[in-house]
Write a protein that binds this DNA or RNA. Sequence first.
DNA 1: CGCCTTCGTTGCGCGGCACGACATACTGGG
DNA 2: CCCAGTATGTCGTGCCGCGCAACGAAGGCG
Lengths: 385, 385
Amino acid sequence: MADPIPRRPDASRQRNLSRILRRIHVAPATRSDLTRLTGLNRSTIGTLVADLTERGLAIEDDASSAGQIGRPSPLVRPSDRPVAMTVNPEIDAITVGVVQLGGRVLRKDRIEVSHRPSVAEAVAVTAEAVARISADLAGDHDVVGLGAAVPGIVRMPDGFVRIAPHLGWRDVAFGEQLQAATGLPVQAANDAILGAQAEWIFGAGRGSDDLLYVNGGASGIGGGIVSGGAPLRGASGHAGEIGHVTVRRGGSLDSAGQQGTLESEVHRAGLLRALGLPTASPDEFERILLASKAGAVTSEVHRQIDSLVVALATAVNLLNPSRIVLGGFLGSLAAVDLRRIRDGVAAHSLDPLWDGVDIRRSQLGSDLLTIGAAQLPIEALIAGL
Amino acid sequence: MADPIPRRPDASRQRNLSRILRRIHVAPATRSDLTRLTGLNRSTIGTLVADLTERGLAIEDDASSAGQIGRPSPLVRPSDRPVAMTVNPEIDAITVGVVQLGGRVLRKDRIEVSHRPSVAEAVAVTAEAVARISADLAGDHDVVGLGAAVPGIVRMPDGFVRIAPHLGWRDVAFGEQLQAATGLPVQAANDAILGAQAEWIFGAGRGSDDLLYVNGGASGIGGGIVSGGAPLRGASGHAGEIGHVTVRRGGSLDSAGQQGTLESEVHRAGLLRALGLPTASPDEFERILLASKAGAVTSEVHRQIDSLVVALATAVNLLNPSRIVLGGFLGSLAAVDLRRIRDGVAAHSLDPLWDGVDIRRSQLGSDLLTIGAAQLPIEALIAGL
DNA sequence: CGCCTTCGTTGCGCGGCACGACATACTGGG
DNA sequence: CCCAGTATGTCGTGCCGCGCAACGAAGGCG
């Protein structure tokens, strides 16, 4: 019943163009692939691809030679001209990136900051980096927009940051300010939601239409949901906050001041403490965690997994996903004992819903949020024409 | 002139016909309403409505104008000829119903059974009732299909019942058997999911695009989700099983043998026990519950609400709904102390996600599952135009 | 080297929709 | 009671997007 669609001319054409561009954004395809995937006629695909090529959004490669019988079909892939810029403000750095259609990260500048950046500082640093990078790109690429992945709760249509506890931001119009400072169309969303989209399209979630992504960050746990082949947004774009799901009565407090939630029970700090480390990079952390045989470490890992599975099983019962992807330090937990996670979720969820659920760790590593943030302007480009 | 060539409507035509039929199924609308809501041209709406009228799916009323200036626009409403048949097998009765487009329940036959019906018995009783009712309807109505609301976990595309603990059914092709026995196209789904759709379209969920419906039945708790203006299905159509969400560690067992889940903590039986009643009809139950001032009852109500809110808050954090509808005995709990429910969910969910959530009790009463089950064949009719 | 298969290309026809012109029905004021 | 104003239904026209069929191109295979 999502009906109130402001009708644009050529709705059908537009929709077919979007379908094709979205497909080749996810993965290049030959023209004959496109005819099969869309159900459209060969001749129609021809005109549509020509249209996309004329607009500078797609290119055709003759490099097929797939050994197939019959006339070879040219490979259609996204043009490398259009790019999305991205920003990911964090506690100790602001990362600005450039991503092509097709998901390739062209550039990623990590700008270290000496202290937790205020909104104004984040906007200023971003605007400066965007201007510098834009100058470098000029002539070779067209920037279609700026996507921001914010570690906090971001209202979806307008990029208004409700709360970003880690950054200390609250009720700030980050999207608007960024748009004013950069002159680019800006969209912002929660980082885990964007991470979910990145893993869904280009990572461990590929091929699944019903995905739950859960990310373990230094400051908390976030999540993102894909359901029925589309990102699940909820009423205000906040869906997926699995970190604040209750897993037990009592217990310690999480970043939102609540007791017994997933992120109050499962956190990187507890593992570091058990390992006797003050801090560690993600790679280092996982290496040491995997190498450790200490009983204290094993028991902390088990304790955290036993809380994690309760939250995952809850999500399985509610959402009936076909795949769960674990990112951040939760991916490290999966590396240590994926079996315990699977068995635990199986035990706490209903059999018919657990049936066929695949739990994996994430694949995209440090490009995750850059690719995810780029998805905002790229999807806007795709849907808009 | 009769067209010798069977017209195969274009995809775009089909979509527009579906949009219009779906709209007037939800609520009658004037032609001018339809032009505004769909964005289509007046003339196009004219041909589309004429098409629906010719097919016997819609009728136009020369509605007395509502005092509007200008030429009055005729009211378009669904025809009363097409009807959906429904069946709802329960432990002590099998209810077979007839529902029109527009959601009006024409008939509802409750066939009492002396013992818990086996699948074969349920199919036989249903087939007999369907045949009898069909004979009565013949000439006046066209049956478009049969929808089944089953208290259990039902695989979505094919109506295969994985588990219906209350009925003692397990892995039976209920949908197929029903189809063979009745000769009608059959679709089946979980009862709470269908209840959610009924409340969404015709009940307390009207107007919300992001809805959580939670139903408290005699044998357990089920739920259904609407997200982004469409029912949330999940990978196999099982999404919404909130009854088996964990709300505490330990505790007693639920119908699936799990500990500390919502339905192991919140159940009608506990309230009946506190009231000192062996059994009671839903209406009677609520009347006595509301009248009771005993401390044991109040404390049991509080105990159950305090568990309920944990599950609801979990769903709020995961799904970001804009409305929650409570049905069955959970509606009675809401009648007793809605305030405590609201405050509890608020306390356990994140502020930005709680913001604007409306918690209500259900409205459709005993027609709930009949209307919900009818939604299956009706939506198939609408989508299949 | 010729046949087969598959795919791109071109011209044609159809169906759906928007648009403009005209007809129609109701409100409200004189 | 009539007339202006307004909103809407109806009809004819034209555009556009797509499917279809015939033809040509490009590679595999014997």
